Simulated assay, not measured.
Amino acid sequence: MSCRVLFVSDDVNAQRAFRLSFAPLRREWDVTVARGGADAMRRLDGPGFDALVADAHLTSVGCADLLLEVRRRHPPTARIVLADRREPDELVRLLALTHRVLQKPYDPTELQNAIQRAYSLRELLHSPSLASVVGRLASVPALSTLYSRIADELMTPDYSLSAVGDLVAQDLGIAAKMLQMANSALIGLRRPATTPNQAVKVLGADLTRTLVLAADLFSRYNPNSLRPFSIEALWEHSQAVAGLAGAIAASERHDDRLSRESALAGLLHDIGRLTLASQLSGPYREVMNIIRVEGLSAADAERRVLGTSHAEVGAYLLGLWGLPDAIVEAVAWHHNPGGCPGGAFTPLTAVHAADAIVRAGEGAKPDAEYLTRLGLADHWGRWVELRERPKVTA
C-alpha cells in the first residue's frame, strides 16, 4: 500500500517544486498537491492521508486552522510544517499542532525521510500484536489533571508560555520534580531556573510537557506494589540513559533542542515496562522469570510472552498522549533502530547508543549496521568515554 501525502501551499512555484522532487517516487507514493488551505480542507472529506505537509504561511485558511482540523478528523495523519525560523512567534504557535517542523528552504531528501519515518512509525504502532496487548490493559494510564490542562492549553494556536508556567506552578510536587530535572545534567540549562515560569521559557512548551509527564508517571506508583519489578531500578537506569543520550547528542554538535529531546526520550524510553508491570502483573512476572533464568533481554522476553515489547507499548502511549514524533520514534525503535528509515542523527540514535552503553554489562551491543548506515560507526569509542563523566543528579 502506497503512502498518501497531501502537500499544501499557496505558492505555485513551491507546488511545482514539490511535484518534481517527488516524481521519482510516484510508484510508491500517492502525492496530492492542494492549492492553499481552503483546497486542502475540501480534500479532507475523503479517506484521509498518511501525511500532511503544509507551508506555515497559508492565506485562505490559516495553517493552524488546517492542522487543528486534520487532527480532529484524521488523528493518525502525520502533520509536517515547513516554516521560516526567522519568524519564531508564528513557529511557536504551530509547534503544539504539528509532529515535525522543517526549515525552509527544505531539502527534498530530508522531507522524504521525515515522511517515511512518520509513516513507518504509524505502521508499527498499528500492528496486530501491539493492538492485542493494548487491548489487554485494564485501562490506558490516566494522565494527571496538570498534564491534561497543559495539553489543553497547547491545543490553542495562541497558547501562552506564561500560562503553561502558571499551570505547572499549581502542583508543587510535580513543579519541584520538573525544576530538579531541568536544572540537572539531564537537561543542562545554561542558567539555573528557580521558578516553573523560568524553566518553561527556556525549555519551551513541548519539552516542559514531556518533563511534567515523566515526573507524573514515575511518581504515581507505590514501589512495593510492583515487586519483584523495581521502579527504583527503572528510574535509575532511565536517568543514566537520559543523561548519556543528551551528552551524545551534544557531542555531535547538534542544537540544544535535539540534545534535550534526546535526554527526554532517554528518560521515557522504558516507560512501557512500567505500564506492563503495573497493568499485566501476572504475565510480567513470567517475563521477569525468563529474564532471570535464561538471561534474555527484557524486550526478547516480552515478545515471547506477550508478542510485543515495552518499546512499542511505550511509544503507543506517548503517541496517544501527543508527544513529539522524535521522542515517540526514539522509544519505539531504541532496541531496533535499523527498522526506522532515514540516515540522519536523531534522538533515536542517541537513545539507542546510550541504552547499549549503560547496559553493556548485561551484554547489550549497538546496532553496528545502523551506525554504519549513518556514518557514525567510528564515533562509538567517543560516546563510550562520555559514560565516565559525572552522573545525572536529578
Rank of each mutant, 00 (worst) to 15 (best):
S9C: 12
Q15M: 03
L25W: 13
R35V: 15
G37V: 06
M41C: 07
F49W: 06
D55P: 07
S60G: 12
S60N: 10
G62F: 06
A64P: 00
D65S: 13
L66V: 02
P75M: 03
P75F: 00
P75E: 00
P75T: 00
V81P: 09
E90N: 14
L95P: 04
V101G: 12
V101M: 03
P108D: 05
T109N: 07
N113E: 07
R117Y: 03
L121A: 00
R136T: 01
S139R: 14
V140N: 02
S160I: 11
L161H: 01
A163Q: 13
L179W: 12
M181F: 11
R190V: 10
N197Q: 14
Q198I: 04
A215T: 04
N222C: 09
I231F: 07
W235T: 11
H237I: 06
A247C: 08
R257D: 11
L267P: 00
H269L: 05
R285M: 10
I290V: 15
R292A: 15
E302Y: 06
V313S: 01
L318H: 06
L323R: 07
I327L: 01
V331I: 01
P341F: 08
G342H: 00
F345L: 14
P347W: 12
R359Y: 02
G363V: 01
A364R: 13
T372C: 09
D378W: 05
E388F: 11
R389P: 06
